[in-house]
Design a protein around this nucleic acid. Structure first.
Lengths: 195, 195
DNA sequence: CCCTTTGCTTGACAGTGTCAAGCTGAGTAG
DNA sequence: CTACTCAGCTTGACACTGTCAAGCAAAGGG
């Protein structure tokens, strides 16, 4: 990544890049501060100048991932038609697509170790992500007096559960993952339609 | 746990107990082989005589947890009435109840690090657990040509996603968790009813 | 009584996160 | 041009980790 003997111009950015690369290529317990430092071409203690702990470095990477996920959801929603449930489903399918495309990253995004980092960067990014889903739920009819919170629980539960189980290979699908996801989500149409 | 200077009668069992206790009381990265050994009253290398790696020890604990989960699901299903969907929902609610009662354990049960241990004990226990769900799905009507695999994806996705999001505090519910879970699952009744 | 084997311990090694102290080079004041 | 300051990174150290090799000790068989 960086020529031997040289230091990268943007050390913080290089560390984030290195961490992301490691997360996507090696098992989680091999994503160490020192490995990131080596890959970024800096000393083993350089990360400490930018991140107070290992969890904080990884948390910063995950915050960025959350923002990308949010953006993907917004893009998909805006490309969908007028029907509120179609828009909600498009949002959910984008979520599933991101999760399946980045399984290691996705799994880490929901681990207490990283969620509990106190700098708030990740919490904020995760909040934005939830807001996009919340808006999509709020725009749909919710018959039977369903609250927005209950609607979010239903919608998020479906996509989060699907990504978790499929990316870990726990359910064997007899069709393409995204087709199966479409079927699972389509099943919620009646709960978010009519009045 | 064990008097100083004494070794436990059942070292393997003591290690499993210690690991379970640690999993439920300290952050995941503090659940070390050496901490388990200390708590069990044996030397730091004793675990190596029973488990080839740290992941294998934890995997054994998780296999046991899977068996308990399976048993809870069977008990709940058998206590439910005759209606196939009521039985499926009872199975799912037992799943959610277990997950929310043991959040740390549940989270570890679905991490690649431990799932990929090759001794097969955990895979077998997980398989049994999936079978119970599969049987419950198979017993329901599945209109629209829904396969058992697709039905399992829908049912498992809902409970797995719910436990993950609620136990990590990512969705704020405006009712008791188990009530919310009931609402989410009830929503699938139409997909598993009629003909 | 000796000898083997099983079951655990002791000791060591490379690797980790994190802290303290030191170096280095750029920028600024004199 | 020199001297000082100081941020930014490095070096070094510590306690801790998983894992391996070797050793001890007690139980069982001859």
């Amino acid at each position: 990544m960086v020529k031997q003997g040289e230091r990268p111009a943007d050390v913080r950015g290089a560390l984030l890049d290195a961490a992301l690369r490691l997360i996507e290529t090696v098992p989680e317990d091999k994503v160490s501060l020192r490995a990131c430092a080596r890959l970024a071409g800096v000393s083993h203690a350089a990360p400490a100048h930018y991140f107070p702990s290992r969890a904080a470095l990884i948390s910063a990477v995950l915050a960025h991932a959350f923002n990308q996920l949010t953006q993907a959801m917004i893009t998909a929603r805006d490309a969908a038609g007028e029907d509120p449930f179609d828009r909600l489903k498009a949002t959910g399918l984008a979520y599933v697509g991101f999760g399946l495309a980045h399984p290691a990253l996705y799994a880490m995004m929901f681990q207490p170790t990283y969620l509990q980092v106190s700098d708030g960067e990740m919490a904020e990014a995760g909040g934005h992500c939830g807001n996009v889903l919340g808006e999509a739920v709020a725009a749909t009819p919710r018959p039977g007096g369903m609250t927005i919170a209950a609607g979010m629980a239903m919608a998020w539960t479906a996509v989060h559960g699907f990504v978790g189980l499929v990316s870990h290979g726990l359910i064997l699908l007899d069709e393409a993952p995204i087709t199966a996801a479409d079927r699972v989500l389509e099943q919620q149409r009646s709960a978010f339609s009519g009045g």
